[in-house]
């Protein structure tokens, strides 16, 4: 008459859903990054999906900034840094001998922690990079003015600056400066946009504007963001990677998965400790 209890799993599968190979934007394999003899990043393998926001979180000094800077070879500007392993972008190792870092940086743009517009006009800030990389109006876009407008629109800044394009980029507020930097990055038509703590110097409203902008941009670009604000990572990202330091103070990847899983039900106790604020 009565059946025994059964239990059924009632929510969407909690199996870790990692990006599939066919939709990868960039992939790091066994990456080791050194500063002199110090290993800042140890054996990190990470598959970053296309048209998604991937957040790198972790405590200070866990190598997340070093890792994101290695994706467009900015890290090698630091004296004494070198790297072992591969980063595959469109099936090619960007650290191969034949690859020019300038070409890598054109395809993989970067937005920095502190808003750093050039000390030039707003217009020049956007146009300079495009001009540099051989922007040709015949190749598609009518002319530079329209391209600048388009980029500023995409960065949700056009309405605020359209009447003062010739004013200095430094005359804008912090949040506007950061969006100008995003417009400048979009202007070189990258495929991936790296953001290294893009909102850490901004007030809460400006921060939310940047986050909202990231959700819009991800329709067209792949975004990788480093943040020490895990609520920001939770709000803005699709995937989250948690890094921490091992006993040698090298950065290691602890857990990588969908953001909703990482923040409600992390697999690793170190992740749990970090996201609930009981780190260390």
């Amino acid at each position: 008459m009565q059946l025994p209890f059964i239990y059924e799993i009632n929510i969407e599968s909690t199996e870790m859903t990692l990006p599939q190979n066919n939709s990868l934007a960039i992939e790091a394999t066994n990456l080791n990054i050194y500063y002199g003899t110090f290993r800042a990043v140890k054996d990190v393998s990470l598959k970053i999906p296309q048209n998604k926001v991937t957040a790198l979180i972790g405590p200070s000094g866990c190598g997340k900034s070093t890792l994101i800077r290695s994706f467009n070879r900015m890290n090698e500007l630091v004296p004494g840094s070198h790297l072992k392993g591969e980063i595959l972008f469109r099936g090619e190792n960007i650290y191969a001998q034949t690859v020019d870092p300038v070409e890598v940086r054109r395809k993989i743009g970067m937005v920095f922690q502190k808003p750093n517009p050039f000390p030039k006009s707003i217009y020049e800030n956007v146009a300079w990079g495009a001009k540099l990389n051989g922007f040709k109006s015949e190749l598609g876009y009518p002319n530079m003015d329209e391209w600048v407008e388009q980029c500023l629109r995409k960065a949700a800044l056009w309405d605020e600056v359209k009447d003062k394009l010739d004013q200095s980029g430094l005359s804008l507020s912090g949040g506007q400066q950061q969006r100008l930097c995003i417009a400048r990055t979009i202007a070189i038509q990258p495929e991936i946009i790296l953001m290294d703590e893009p909102a850490s110097a901004l007030d809460p409203i400006a921060t939310l504007k940047i986050e909202e902008l990231m959700r819009e941009l991800v329709e067209e670009y792949t975004i990788i963001v480093v943040t020490h604000n895990m609520h920001q990572a939770a709000r803005v990202s699709d995937y989250t990677a948690f890094l921490t330091m091992d006993e040698d103070r090298s950065g290691v990847l602890v857990e990588y998965g969908q953001t909703n899983q990482i923040f409600t039900n992390p697999r690793d106790s170190r992740t749990e400790g970090y996201i609930t604020g009981r780190y260390g």
Partner: peptide, 20 residues
Amino acid sequence: SIRQASYGVGATRWQTTWSH
């Protein structure tokens, strides 16, 4: 930060030096 910004938009070392 200015040099980094310049490298970040794909400038060469000379372009960075000359323009910024």
